[in-house]
Write a protein that binds this DNA or RNA. Sequence first.
DNA 1: ATATCATTCAATTATAAGATTGATAGCTCA
DNA 2: TGAGCTATCAATCTTATAATTGAATGATAT
Lengths: 218, 218
Amino acid sequence: MNKSEQKRSIYQHFAVVAKALGHEYRWELLELIAQGERSVDSLSQFTELAVATVSQHLQQMRRAGLVCSRKKGRFVYYSLADDRVITLMGGLRDVAERNIAEVRQLVDSFHGDSSTLDAVDAHELLELLSSGSVILLDVRPEQEYASGHLPGALNIPMEELQERLREIPEGQTIVAYCRGPFCALSQEAVELLREQGLEAMRFDSGYPEWKASGLPVQ
Amino acid sequence: MNKSEQKRSIYQHFAVVAKALGHEYRWELLELIAQGERSVDSLSQFTELAVATVSQHLQQMRRAGLVCSRKKGRFVYYSLADDRVITLMGGLRDVAERNIAEVRQLVDSFHGDSSTLDAVDAHELLELLSSGSVILLDVRPEQEYASGHLPGALNIPMEELQERLREIPEGQTIVAYCRGPFCALSQEAVELLREQGLEAMRFDSGYPEWKASGLPVQ
DNA sequence: ATATCATTCAATTATAAGATTGATAGCTCA
DNA sequence: TGAGCTATCAATCTTATAATTGAATGATAT
């Protein structure tokens, strides 16, 4: 095999990785897997896709080095191969948002007019936390919180937030976070909290991005 | 459109960007475009692909926000939309190399046993340059050098290197660079220079990566 | 104006990827 | 051991993407 063929073969393999990110369902699956390892069945339920379909998508991502799997009892648990995958997804998102006007609009309208302004990035959140002036609220399901969360975060799943409002210490601004930039949970939380007259804003990404950027987790 | 549909639509668009990186030909085209803007015709000649094929691939990449085009006379010149695209490609390469054993092997055998050891990264190169102890050699075609190169680099295209050896100042180690990590030129150059008894090594990436990481160019 | 040339478009055929279904493998627990 | 379950495989149909060809566009130069 000469240099030119070798190069083509290498690029072919890179293309395999890119193709693995070339389907919307796989982005949704990755968003969930990034919270912690999950079984095929659980992913199938969450995404409302057929088990066989999910299994095939997962295998394609495994071949591409995006996820890895581990068998435990009757279940196969998939997890991210590497935190670099989160970084890669972020890079892709960045290119899409910056270079395609349509995507910018979609993302803007997803985040809504008001809450975009009040989203804090990791740097700002770190400052707020060190000043001790905010409550950090994790609104993901309990299981996802359990498999890893931001240090000092209080967990109240979005579904239970309405009933458990009194568990939140009063008098401090609340910063809510969830699975990532396109998970609607933290946004819903902010809306609910504001309706209650509380001061609230959302973290502009989520647990996976926090972890991938090397910040400490619990 | 509700949140869930919006999210799916956003992920769909991200998938479009990923798909655009999901073909080996497009990686080859990007490697060339990353050196500076190029016409469809010139890209077609270099890659030995039909003009219409190249045109279609380019359009797909334009839709994905990877490249942009500009008409000048009878020619359409394509260039990178953004240096972030280089970063993105690097991230993809990283995931592929780290998580797929087969790719690691391919990349290793591409770079050859000996020259891998003597490849320097951007950081090392910067140190070498500031110590003034090395000659920096750009072995890309003249036109690519002209549209941008590392500061202080001497340009001798690989094709002419054999005949123009005497233009290289003697007594110093030579660091050769080219289009990027999978361009064979700098490696060929190192082999040729070593056969001549000169001390030579290669830069482990290329001009586009240097530029994308924010380092100065001429 | 018209000939020329680079590029794109449009239509066709070939190839590859996705979804669905039913069957199979492998693990648990009775 | 065998019923019951999870996940994967295999086969099929459907859909999407690629390459090729020839025609069309649009700018340039005579």
